[in-house]
Design a protein around this nucleic acid. Structure first.
Lengths: 212, 212
DNA sequence: GTCTATACCCGGATAGAC
DNA sequence: GTCTATCCGGGTATAGAC
């Protein structure tokens, strides 16, 4: 890892400001409603200069997602450092809590799965895909381990658990509860975490279910 | 209820085709990516004619949501007719199952909560708001009843349950599982329904939870 | 690499004939 | 009410000077 020149450092800081702006705007308005003009204004440079750093709006979005995934992976490492031997379920729960907190702070970017052009661009984006797969792999291992100990219902397909946990990053329930103004952020985090994992938990007493 | 003239009937059928197209396009691409040109093409008339029926894109979206809410309310009635005395939990479960099936069929429209212009327009839209409130009220009553019998955790705020159930209408887990192609639609419906209601259920055995 | 100015296109909405 | 043709704002992306 070589020392960065002054110029390169400035470059880094600038791009960080840009990605930070994209991150916030993606969280606040979503991809379609976010305009490149806004990004430039918030990052404090002109639109033309911005396009020297990132060649398209899609690249901007990808960069923001890469940073978000990096933060998630960093979070995973930090948490492994704090607790000596955390169980797989505790790891997953802490990751979900971090996700919900980030969302409550307006710092969780999320992209529309419906925009096929954007989705295609992301699939070609190596930095993004690598990180996404790495995070999925780690979570997948924890899920399997938690299923082995029946902390997560072994009957459920592991993808269901994975998708369910990922979906907390864009859960509308969080924003609706916050908008109500009745509850603290931490309370919201705990409720959503609890209901999510209770839903995935092994069934101790099978409730009566309609047979069809 | 007076008999409709032939002309009025044609009018109705035309508007139904329009709203149907909006419904499908909202489900497939979302509000921002749906263009009025597409709606007109799919409904089989010109854009200018379409604007004689609905005065704006927002009106189109509202009309689709009104129809979706009407279908949900109709579903509620049908189900009350089939079963003589359904418990509140069974009512909620059946409604969620219907929601998930509709989503799997690509017939569940959903709007971005981030578009403030659209949200403001909907809040002023009486037909929409009346139906939304009616459905919320019905569900709210069932939730309170289910909490009274501890089928839903009485410790949870009822709004949390309400939002959680509403959120199934745009749950990304459904689409991801379907995209995987490994499971039948009915299996997906049952899994998501089960995890949702297990998550909201009263806690029989409190799991160990990290205190912070 | 940064700026100002602009090309270019797309999409919502409308004009005006029939 | 339906159509064809058009307006016009706004958004992505670029030209070209410094």
């Amino acid at each position: 890892m070589t020392r960065l020149s002054f110029k390169e450092q400035v470059h880094r800081v600038r791009e960080d400001a840009i990605v930070g702006a994209v991150n916030r705007l993606l969280a606040a308005k979503g991809y379609e409603l976010m305009t490149v003009d806004e990004v430039a204004a918030e990052a404090g440079l002109s639109k033309a200069s911005l396009y020297k750093h990132f060649t398209s709006k899609e690249e901007l979005a990808a960069a923001a997602m890469v940073r978000a995934l990096d933060r998630a992976l960093h979070q995973v490492q930090e948490q492994a450092r704090r607790v000596p031997e955390p169980g797989p379920l505790a790891q997953l729960q802490d990751l979900v809590r971090w996700t919900l907190r980030t969302q409550l702070e307006g710092e969780m970017p999320s992209l529309p799965a419906q925009n096929s052009r954007l989705v295609a661009a992301l699939k070609e984006h190596k930095d993004y895909m690598n990180r996404l797969l790495e995070l999925s792999d780690r979570m997948g291992e924890w899920i399997l381990a938690a299923q082995a100990s029946a902390e997560i219902d072994p009957e459920l397909p592991p993808e269901l658990a994975l998708y369910t946990l990922f979906a907390r990053a864009c859960d509308p329930v969080v924003g609706l509860l916050k908008a109500g103004g009745q509850h603290s952020d931490e309370q919201i985090v705990e409720w959503v975490t609890a209901t999510t994992f209770r839903g995935l938990a092994g069934a101790p007493a099978p409730a009566k279910r309609k047979t069809r």
